[in-house]
Structure formats: C-alpha cells, structure tokens
Design a protein around this nucleic acid. Structure first.
Lengths: 206, 206
DNA sequence: CCCGAAATCCCTATTTTTAGGGATTTTTTT
DNA sequence: AAAAAAATCCCTAAAAATAGGGATTTCGGG
C-alpha cells in the first residue's frame, strides 16, 4: 500500500533532489513529474497520484492555476503546495482553492516526508510559520488599520448602503475605481461580499 | 403659450369629463387621449405633450408600466398619476419611476387643474393624503417593528455577512424563499439593496 | 533619483442580487 | 369559519457585484 506522488517543479535539480528524498521512504512512489502545469489534467488522468507536490512559481502555468484545475476536476487528489517564500496572498489563494497543505522549500526533509504522509491520511500539513499566518487572520485586530485612507472612505460609504455607482459619484471617480478599491478591501479583510464588508465595518470600525 | 396634455384612461366617460374640465382653462389643450398605454411611446412621439394625465388601472398595459416607458424614453415629459385609491405600493412605485405627482380621482376639479399647472412648472403635485404617506416613510419609527419574525431572522443573518445561499442553508429553506423574504424586507423598509438593509439593521435594530 | 504604496482607470467573464411576476400551505386573527 | 398574514417555493430577466487580469499616475521616503 504505497502513496503515489506527482511532482511539479520547474527546476530539474529540485525535482531530482525531491525524488532522492522520497525514495528514502519505501511507502512513497514518485509516479511522474513535470516542470509546469500546462498538462495538469492529463497528468492526473494518466498517473492518478494520491498526492501532488506542487511548486508555486513555475513558468507558463503556475502552481496556483494547476491547483485550481486539479481540485476542480479531481477533488480527491491531495495537493501539497511548496514554495520558497511565505507569501500571505498565495497561501490564502491556495487554501481557498483546496490545497491540503503548504510547506516551504527549506523545511527539513523529515518534515516534507511527514507532510506527505499527513495529507495522504486526510490531514492538513502547514509549515509552522504558515500556520501562524493563518491563525492571524482570525484575530481581526491588526487588520483594522490596514486599509488605506481611501479604502476606509469607500468602506464607510458602502456601509451607509450606497452602491458602487453612488460611491463613485460621491467621490467623483469612476465606477472601476470603486471596483478596484473594493477588491483591495476584500483582499485585505479576507472577505468576498459587500455584506461581510459592512458587517466588518459596524463590528470593528464603528 | 399653452400646456399640451395627453390623457390615458380606460373609461371614455372619465376621459370626456376630464376634457370638459380642462377646457375651462384656456391655457390647457388636450392634444390626444388613449384607453391604455400599449402605444405610449408612439403616442408621445406623435403628440409631444407637456403633461400626461395617467390613470393607473387600465387593461393591457397599465399606468405604472406606461409611466416607466414614457420616463425612460422622454424624461422631460411630466407624468401626473391619477387613481381611485391611495395604494401605498403604487404610490411608491410611481414616484420611484419618476412621476411628477399623484392625485386622486375624487379630488376637486380645481385641484386637478392646479396640479397640472404645478407639474408643468416643474413642481410636484401630491394629494394631501398621499403626501402624508410619503412623509410617513421618513420617520422610521413604525417601520421598526413591521418585519415579521422570519424576516427579522433573515435580515440579521444577512447583516452577519451571509449570502442568500448561506442563509437558506442555515435556515434549512430554499434559495427562493430567502429571495422572497428579502424582497418583502426591501418593500417594507423601502430600500433596494443588501447594503441599505445591513445599514438599517445596525442603525435601527442593533 | 528610485521604489513602493496609493489611487486611478480599463476589459472580460462569472456569480449574486434584485425585480417582477405567480402560487401554495400554514398560522393567526378576527 | 373566513380573512389576513406569514412562510414557503418557482420562473425569468436585468442589474449589480465579484474576480482576475492589466496599466498609468502621483506622491512620499529613503
């Protein structure tokens, strides 16, 4: 009873060292590899891995897009994201899109093997630094001040019940500007609707 | 310098008596008439009236629809709504759609002539009873308690930032039910967006 | 002087919400 | 018991919001 693994990484070197690492655990079998996600769907169809080790920064079709494609078509396949930096936005984009874990490239080898095992068993594997960031999003404190002056102004007008168009008129800018501000507000607050934005406003900013 | 008037009313009798009335004022000229709004656009194009006297209850295409069509294409034409009853919803639908006034059929003849004159000059003419209803909507007092228990529940969940779908799941009912509740909430509070609803919730119900 | 954050604007496509109907069943209230 | 109010569900179409890109300008600090 082995764990079938597919590796995506644009560096041949890196793929080789990963294969060397994984070969230490006889339960793990690297069934195939690729330098990017252009053929992600076919890859999965052909090799039906249990776990995908996914680098984020790859040319052509990157890991975030690959993750989406794979989870969309094969929700049962576990995808473990792997990158050099702990970029907050990418972490959340990944988790939102169904990643089973997020590890860093300089994590200890033992950690990586452990992570694969965890996600295969249905758990989630997060590098501790990543885990901290995730938890941070549940304490709204520091987010309060993260909005720019304009974003705060837009949010307060939305909280009055104004539509994008009305806010645009009131501030003398175009609709698209308000759309952009709102997108940034949603990004910063990690929400995705006007209702959540207004609830946030009255709960934390009022 | 006369005022060109178009009369919409399904009762021939009523149209005749209106024409008789309006002929008393030599400034007023009834340029044409129709028993409903099927050809409203063409009517206005052909006769370019200054003021339209619009009955609400007519077969085929009624006055509310006629109002919308006319104001949509010819915003400069004044439309004076006229009906037998002071139905709150129709009043608000009319005013929202750009009616210049709202009078009742049993208003005194003198009132009717006056109303036409007012709207022609760019003013608004409201029967006093109607005016009262309109003012009522600006005092939020009585609206506070007007929501049904379920409507209040739905509103409070929306105010938490939940989408229609999430509210539906949470309450174990279908999406369309929430849609309907929301429509009723908006009607009762005389608003028309989730933003206004949530603002109302935090300002008046919290 | 360069960099980065902030603010502005645009395009495209999808998802949600809103509006306008209609309709049935259950509860309450008279 | 009949009427009114509340709650449920459905359909369709239009409007608004959301998501994902990209891009330019301004302004303040290092």
């Amino acid at each position: 009873m082995s764990i079938r693994i597919f590796i995506y990484d644009d560096s041949t070197e890196r793929r080789d060292s990963l294969k060397a690492l994984l070969s230490l655990d006889e339960q793990l079998v690297v069934v195939a590899e690729a330098p990017n996600c252009i053929h992600a769907i076919q890859d999965i169809e052909n090799y039906f891995p249990d776990v995908v080790l996914m680098d984020i920064n790859m040319p052509e079709v990157d890991g975030l897009e690959g993750l989406k494609r794979i989870k969309n078509k094969f929700p049962e396949v576990k995808v473990l994201m792997q990158t050099a930096y702990d970029d907050s936005e990418k972490i959340f984009t990944s988790l939102k899109n169904g990643a089973s874990g997020y590890i860093l490239k300089n994590d200890k080898p033992q950690r990586i093997l452990q992570a694969i095992d965890e996600v295969f068993k249905g758990g989630a594997a997060l590098n501790p630094a990543i885990a901290q960031k995730v938890l941070d999003y549940f304490k709204p404190a520091q987010r309060t001040t993260s909005l720019s002056p304009k974003e705060n102004e837009v949010l307060s007008l939305l909280a009055e019940g104004l539509s994008y168009k009305m806010v645009a008129d009131k501030l003398g800018v175009s609709y698209t500007t308000i759309n952009t501000h709102t997108k940034r507000i949603y990004e910063k607050l990690h929400i995705s609707s006007i209702g959540e934005a207004i609830a946030y406003y009255y709960k934390h900013l009022q």
